[in-house]
């Protein structure tokens, strides 16, 4: 099977001094859970936005399932942005309708099951939810799609540790061998156990792409500890 994502010499600059993504070449296989790690401002979110077609590259290319980023690829990529886009006065039920209309691969049953697992009432309006619960609802919507690629931008930053465990378990349980999950986060220690591989970025460049167990074998330390070493301030 072909690679899920093939990125070639990808560059995106916001102005001449700020090159957010700098000549990245990377191919990602199917069936992996991959951490996208890097300090603030290293280009993680820009890379994610390029993968989702929210930004257009200055140069280079991205292929998903062999297709250039566009309407076709968006139907198979489930994206959790770093901020909300669901209207506050909507009820959760209405958000479920919205996702059902938008995405052919959305499973309402799955979403309802997860909502009840986290004891969130689907009749509640988004704006009445706590910040953490709002984040959970968004993640549930995204994970309830049967996509080839899940791109999660900081999915666990705002939720409590118990919900974090539930979310990670949700990601593991929904794992499908044909799909890849790309997670950007600062909370490496919390998700290290569920990752296969990690991508380290710095100043818009790719520093490292390897497996978690490789780092542990080669350096005798966790990815979290290794990250602190590589990016020591």
């Amino acid at each position: 099977m072909e690679d899920l994502i093939a990125i070639k010499n990808l560059t995106k600059a916001y102005d001449s001094r700020h090159v957010a993504v700098n000549d990245i070449t990377l191919t990602l296989p199917r069936g992996r859970i991959i951490g996208l790690l890097g300090p603030n401002g290293s280009g993680k979110t820009t890379l994610i936005k390029l993968i989702n077609g929210l930004l257009t590259p200055d140069s280079g290319s991205i292929l998903i399932n062999g297709e250039p980023v566009g309407t076709k690829t968006k139907a198979h990529v489930a994206y959790l942005p770093d901020r909300t886009y669901l209207a506050g006065n909507r009820k959760i039920n209405e958000c479920l309708d919205f996702f059902g209309d938008f995405y052919a691969d959305f499973s309402r049953e799955k979403a309802c099951e997860m909502l009840s697992g986290l004891k969130i009432d689907p009749a509640a309006r988004m704006q009445t939810l706590s910040k953490g619960n709002r984040e959970k609802v968004q993640l549930i919507l995204v994970m309830s799609r049967n996509a080839d690629l899940y791109v999660l931008d900081e999915p666990i930053a705002g939720v409590d540790p118990a919900a974090r465990d539930y979310i990670l378990r949700t990601i593991i349980n929904n794992y499908n061998p044909g799909a890849t999950v790309l997670i950007s986060t600062h909370l490496i220690g919390d998700i290290e156990q569920v990752l296969d591989e990690v991508i380290f970025m710095r100043y818009g460049r790719l520093v490292l792409y390897t497996s978690v167990d490789n780092i542990r074998e080669q350096h005798g330390k966790s990815v979290d500890a290794y990250f602190r070493e590589v990016f020591a301030c």
Partner: peptide, 13 residues
């Protein structure tokens, strides 16, 4: 899958 969920680790691992 069951073992991975129990251990809270990645199924590939």
């Amino acid at each position: 899958r069951e073992l991975a969920a129990e251990a809270a680790v990645n199924p590939n691992t």
